[in-house]
Design a binder for these strands. Structure first.
Lengths: 211, 211, 211, 211
DNA sequence: GATGAATGAGGGTTCATTCAT
DNA sequence: TATGAATGAACCCTCATTCAT
């Protein structure tokens, strides 16, 4: 059907365009991670993405917009996953184990690790970035965690209310694992799973007191 | 005493020189903290320090050397304090409380907070900085903590060995408190003392087991 | 008539093409007038003309050719009108009044004003433009004016030969009126007709000598 | 006196700095005149001035500030001269001749010609430039001219009030002479003095009517 | 030692032009 | 013929570093 040719053509174009956009985002993540936002050069991003420098500006208003969209596009999908997981009705410790697993496979083992590191390293200079992350990621994750904790506490599965008051205690070791990986892994490797489970042991007790 | 005049003069000169050096370091910490290493401008450092731009180069080889010396000069003294504190022979929980207090007053409430944030934010781009910090600060602090934990465990004061295997679990909330302060304090303030004590409650139990 | 369909189609095509060309020229005049040749962007010209950027290059070799054709196409028709008017055999002062009216309605009140301004503002950077304008417009207008003046002088209608030696004296206020309009109208409006008639009063005397 | 050495040194520095500033202004006038503001490249300005590109920014905030200061610094002194000349109490025609001479020697024969051309060519794109010129040059000159004309009219030296109502009539040929010089001189040279005096003849009458 | 004017390489961004569709 | 995504050279401006005073 010749009538489809233009559609197919347009589709091919749109596809190529989308592919370039993704290539630019991936290259930008590489460069921003390696050099930091300010020191990263769009020249290098373009070369790494295999496009001309001007092409970046067809997809992103400027360097900062590229950075912001990079952060947003990588983390958004994960928040949904995490919220869905936290809504399940399973025993607290099993849930905690599952969240650790989710973090290790969906964050620590992926480029999301680099994105989180970028939020930590560049956030202080990008108030809007910190705000975006807080509103769209952090506050949602913390709310979901608090809700889950409350249900667990109601079932008497928590030895302490520390976690409810400070959901950050669950995230802290995860953040530190990411930072450790980038800074000190070469001097002293860290077993992420064991590390995170150790924190869980503190919350739930490895073996409950007296058992 | 005229004989002393030259010495006194030299002394005064050296004093003025040292004062300038300190002023430059303080100004550099301000600017690096506010802008990040790459975006910070030596022009602003000089203006803030009240010296000419060229003067910086009389004290530091280049921008990077200034940054490295800045980091190195601030944390070292604190390690001694911490090691000394950890060597004391007091009950584990009391010791932990004391360390929290030390952190809050000697780190969180001082410029050391900014230095630690700089290590986290700039470390990925300065491998030598990460190494310096690991060797001269982190590994010493972790060793001292492990030793203290071991003594506490021997006295049966620890509900879990998680802390011994991962001393980072004690540091994680402290690091996260510093990062939170710079990133999200304006959206959701964090009570640092309560936060760190909540983690201690996990380790030692809010109320010891069986009480 | 099926035989005509292709011709009609071709005619329609040619018509559409010519319409696009005109739209581009009109849009270009807008943009060049507002921004100047160098600062004007073909992107804006295309958008304003309702065509794609590439379409411009189907009608004009490059930005400079577009500019030159724009200038050339607007003024030429007017020269014929002016020459015809100047050939009429009427009293000098009446003729002068008529020329002023022609300028006000056919130049000052139309897009030709913008074109003349462009010749003045961009001419220094486009020697070929200045030459084209001189050869096809200015020299012809000046020659026609001189001829008219000579006839008027022969009839004793001119108080001075200044105008014959320097026909530019007639054009000068007209040019200045155009420039004033673009530069200072907002600070001090200028009544163009009165202004030009004032110059005529100088040449012919407000009331002819001796009356 | 050794005490003077620093002063002399500072003086030499300041002198060199001022010389550079002047060199930049002169080079900028060259480039802006030849290329127009937008097309002129600061690289070329720097090369022509014999300084590094960055040096321009030690003296001028940006390209636009360089342009504005250029205009202002060249014309300001002349306005004083002109106002002073117009205040003198001499016969109108003698004054007019003197003003023509002033224009020919102090404007047309100097770089001021280029500056005036720049105001005309770049003014439409620089509202602030047009405003500056109107407020600090044009309105002052026109006011001084009107005042002079009024005195001349009171003495019965003017054949027409056209000049009082439109002082622009005196400036128009001067402006046109400048534009002609840049655009058409190579095709048809213009005797500026004769041209301007021809306009004066219109105002004052070469020989008064009937004489 | 101290200064700060001068340097010039470097990077973000723009935009005329091309060309595959 | 018309499109508009892609290109990459060009240009303004910054800022680490130097050096004459």
């Amino acid at each position: 059907m010749p009538a489809e040719t233009p559609r197919a053509t347009n589709g091919a174009r749109a596809q190529r365009s989308a592919a370039r956009r993704e290539a630019i985002l991936a290259a930008a993540l590489d460069e921003f991670s390696a050099q930091g936002f300010t020191a990263a050069r769009l020249d290098d991003v373009a070369r790494r993405a295999g496009v001309a420098k001007g092409t970046i500006y067809l997809h992103f208003r400027d360097k900062e917009a590229l950075f912001q969209e990079l952060i947003g596009s990588v983390l958004a999908p994960f928040v949904d996953t995490l919220e869905a997981a936290l809504a399940a009705d399973i025993p607290a410790r099993a849930m905690a184990d599952q969240i650790v697993e989710l973090f290790v496979t969906q964050v620590y083992g992926t480029r999301r690790q680099e994105v989180i590191r970028l939020i930590v390293t560049e956030g202080p200079r990008f108030p809007s970035l910190a705000e975006f992350y807080y509103r769209h990621v952090l506050s949602r994750v913390m709310a979901a965690m608090r809700e889950w904790m409350r249900r667990a506490a109601a079932r008497g599965e928590l030895a302490s209310d520390a976690f409810i008051r400070f959901p950050q205690l669950m995230g802290a070791p995860a953040i530190v694992a990411i930072l450790w990986h980038g800074l000190f892994e070469r001097f002293e490797p860290l077993d992420v799973r064991a590390f995170l489970h150790a924190q869980l042991d503190l919350v739930f007790g490895r073996k409950p007191c007296g058992e």
